[in-house]
Amino acid sequence: MFDLAGYGPQLLSGTVTTIELSLLSLLVSFLLGLLGATAKLSKHRIFKGVATIYTTIIRGVPDLVLMLLIFYSLQIWVNDFTGWLNNLQSTYSFGLQLDPFTSGTITLGFIYGAYFTETFRGAFLAVPKGQLEAARAFGMRSGLVFRRVLFPQMMRHALPGLGNNWQVILKATALVSIIGLSDVIKAAQAAGEATYRSFFFICIAGAVYLVLTILSNGVLMLLERKYAIGVRRAVL
């Protein structure tokens, strides 16, 4: 019954790819989210406008459509740019290849950066103003205020939303197999079509995702406990 028909290694390397892709996309979207939230809360009208347009468009257009758009079009723009570079000088020839993994990371990071922007915006607002004023009164520079006061406290408020976004990203990596990434789903599909046992192999892919979900739930609980240090809960 549990015969992988030689597809075991491919399934395993696909799983690793899925995990790598999710972690990298998380990192990109996390940073973009911080940037976006700062922009949205800034006093500059231009920053605010750009960030608002970004979050509105991203949340209005399906991720798969954006992914196809970026996977195929971004490469052409990049080529135009490197072609322009190559025309300027002829000693070197520049080239930049966007393989499915890179495009997937960029796209997922870009899309979920918008969701993170909203998460972080709410979390930033949840940090009491007095704390920031106190930090400034101590003579801290704004970088230090961010690092020592704003960020750690903001994280506590952002964690539930963050965890939610992570789960969504993890599942969204499934889409990248559609643009040709050899992830766990691609491996399961290939195995299923070759052996005519799709049901079995796709169940395996599903199980991999379930296990990843359970694992990340555990990690999130630990993180939540860490960031909740020093917070007094109401006893009901």
């Binding site: 490197t82 070197y92 520049f94 080239g95 930049l96 290849q97 966007l98």
Partner: peptide, 14 residues
């Protein structure tokens, strides 16, 4: 590092 590794702006002789 990963950005550089996964998307090398490969400059090489023609």
């Amino acid at each position: 590092a990963l950005g550089v590794a996964s998307a090398p702006l490969a400059a090489h002789a023609k």
